[in-house]
Design a protein around this nucleic acid. Structure first.
Lengths: 137, 137
DNA sequence: TAGCAATAGCTATTGCGCATAGCAATCCGT
DNA sequence: ACGGATTGCTATGCGCAATAGCTATTGCTA
């Protein structure tokens, strides 16, 4: 059976991302965290007081889509919002949030290490730089 | 503003795939084709008579999700289903489907060329092999 | 300082891709 | 001939992201 897709780098990118993210999501499941939660957790942890808008810009997520995400994490007692002025709120991790972040970080680092192991050593150092060229200008 | 995500190869993979696929989808829009349509079009074009199940296995798409996809493409007169036996149908491109495939191939090849151009030359030859190691065993 | 554009947060809705569960009909190997 | 596997299908739900539109507040500038 011919498969012309196998010659297309773009298809390789798509399938590789799907496979890797699927596995990552599976490892996150025991923590009760979604993919998007983890990035927010990391970013709020590293930048206490950021607003939802700033977060959205860093993650390239629309403001509208930040709302349910923040609400869910707040409901899970992972973070809290404190008013900065009349229209902005600063986000900070609760203690629960910090603990969950620490767990997530263990998962992340283990996962990233295994990910890089799966890339043949000859290509390893080229992996991230090549990908970064495609989305960071 | 600190961004710990930028150090994670997995995040680079995710964002690169999203950026690249977004751009690709945009170029497909004038043709009235979805991302998943294109892969089906390519595969049916290269393998006339394949069944939806075989297609699904090649693309790693569940049988259940093939149904609306095939139905849509059939409704658009891109392909037709002819019974093989009492339960299977062979898929073939119509003339319209073949013409649309040819258009899609032009888009694809142009896009793939530009994609590889955006990968710094030093990393270029490592790009696809590294990705393929992550999803093809 | 008054006015106005930009910003922050939000609601509501939609689309895409993918997953699971279950069903009826058909095929095939022992 | 029978039972397990396969095919195509319905129905449904989840996660992520996009768009349009709204209110209130902020902050620049004329």
């Amino acid at each position: 059976m011919k498969d012309p897709l196998l010659d297309l780098p773009g298809y390789s990118l798509r399938r590789a991302a799907a496979a890797v993210m699927g596995e990552f999501v599976a490892r996150l499941e025991p923590l009760g965290l979604r993919l998007s939660d983890v990035s927010a957790l990391l970013l709020v942890g590293a930048n206490p007081g950021v607003t939802a808008s700033q977060l959205g810009r860093m993650l390239d997520i629309q403001r509208a889509n930040m709302v349910p995400m923040i609400a869910r994490m707040e409901a899970a007692r992972l973070l809290l919002r404190q008013p900065i002025d009349g229209k902005s709120h600063g986000l900070r991790l609760t203690e629960i949030g910090q603990a969950r972040l620490a767990e997530a970080q263990r998962v992340i680092h283990g996962f990233e290490a295994e990910l890089m192991e799966r890339v043949p050593q000859a290509h390893r150092e080229h992996f991230k730089p090549a990908l970064d060229a495609l989305w960071r200008d």
